[in-house]
């Protein structure tokens, strides 16, 4: 075990993969000599060489297209998109190509790669360094979508993603890259994809969240515990495939659900969770499902604290959901 920040845990996972699998190649903008703008790849080019940690031209579609070509050939490329906000030039490669290669070839061409991208607000990044775009990709069959919230999960989920036979979009909550530290197992630590984690047990209300919202939801739960409300916090960890049994089991226990994400509400990932609860857990529910999300506006620079769900807003939603019905 080693005490690490989340971004250090990402770095350790990449280092472990480079050491143990010669098929692993990293490519992206500023990831080599510079070690990445968030230092996620610090030291890796120095230790593994410029042929395995490749500084690319500024071209997201080129980065992802080239990574697909590598994966088709049998490598395990790990492309980095510097900010998730800049993923859209590569949208065609991700949605039309990466997600569909296995399918469209009748299974002849698997395309296993892990696309890493830091996402989310709370760092004064404004419109184009703050977005939380997971829903576009969760909507696309053929992709897996993973979002860690702790250093140990960051390493364990990343190593599982690299070993996975399907393409994985691995979105890292940059807001808590350094603010969260934790014990991380050394060596080949794996957290299986498709398993949620109950980070706090409770009996009155279930809160479903992921990424940078997890510590905020936990803080809100602690605050409400003082008022006598027992809140269960479930970190989904993998958006696709979703751990649906964990979602349903928690609501069957508490009868109340609050869904928290920082992306806009309309057609956000929480809408899918709410729909699943309506279809499969309606008779367990004692209160309307409540969503706490970013607002349906572009991401505002100066007023991001109002835009983003915070402990107060989350706690208030849990409180009213606990009282409802």
């Amino acid at each position: 075990m080693t005490e690490l920040t989340l971004v250090q845990a990402v770095n350790r996972a990449l280092r472990h993969a480079l050491q143990n699998d010669p098929n692993v190649i990293l490519l992206g903008e500023d990831i080599g000599v510079n070690g990445g703008v968030f230092r996620a790849t610090e030291g890796l080019q120095k230790d593994f060489g410029a042929e395995r940690v490749i500084d690319t031209p500024l071209s997201e579609t080129g980065i992802v297209g080239a990574a697909i070509g590598m994966a088709l050939y049998g490598l395990r490329p790990i492309p980095e998109i510097q900010f998730q906000d800049f993923i859209f030039p590569a949208f065609d490669q991700i949605v039309s190509e990466l997600a569909k290669f296995r399918y469209r070839s009748g299974g002849q061409y698997p395309c296993p790669l892990v696309l890493r991208a830091p996402y989310g607000g709370g760092i004064k990044g404004g419109l184009y360094h703050s977005q939380s775009n997971e829903a576009y990709f969760a909507h696309t069959p053929g992709l897996k979508v993973v979002i860690p919230s702790s250093p140990a999960d960051a390493k364990g989920l990343l190593l599982s993603s690299i070993a996975d036979e399907d393409p994985v979009l691995f979105f890292e909550p940059k807001r808590i890259y350094r603010s969260v530290t934790g014990e991380v197992p050394d060596g080949d630590h794996r957290v299986p994809l498709g398993t949620a984690a109950t980070v706090r047990e409770g009996t009155d209300v279930s809160v479903f969240c992921y990424g940078a919202m997890v510590p905020l939801c936990t803080a809100a739960a602690e605050r409400l515990a003082n008022d006598g409300t027992s809140v269960e916090v479930v970190d989904l960890r993998t958006l696709v495939p979703l751990d649906e049994p964990a979602l349903l089991a928690s609501v069957e226990k508490t009868g109340r659900a609050v869904i928290v994400h920082e992306a806009p509400r309309f057609c956000g990932y929480g809408a899918e969770l709410a729909a699943i609860l309506a279809e499969k857990a309606l008779y367990s529910l004692q209160a309307p499902v409540c969503r706490v999300t970013g607002y349906d506006t572009p991401f505002p620079y100066a007023l991001e604290n109002l835009y983003l769900p915070g402990v107060e807003r989350i706690a208030e939603a849990i409180r009213s959901t606990a009282r409802a019905g």
């Binding site: 297209g65 080239a66 088709l72």
Partner: peptide, 19 residues
């Protein structure tokens, strides 16, 4: 295996050559 969006295969071919 081909796709309908045009040009996507071009950067893929470069990636395969790198691999």
């Amino acid at each position: 295996t081909a796709s309908s969006p045009v040009g996507t295969q071009i950067s893929q071919a470069v990636g395969t050559a790198l691999a």
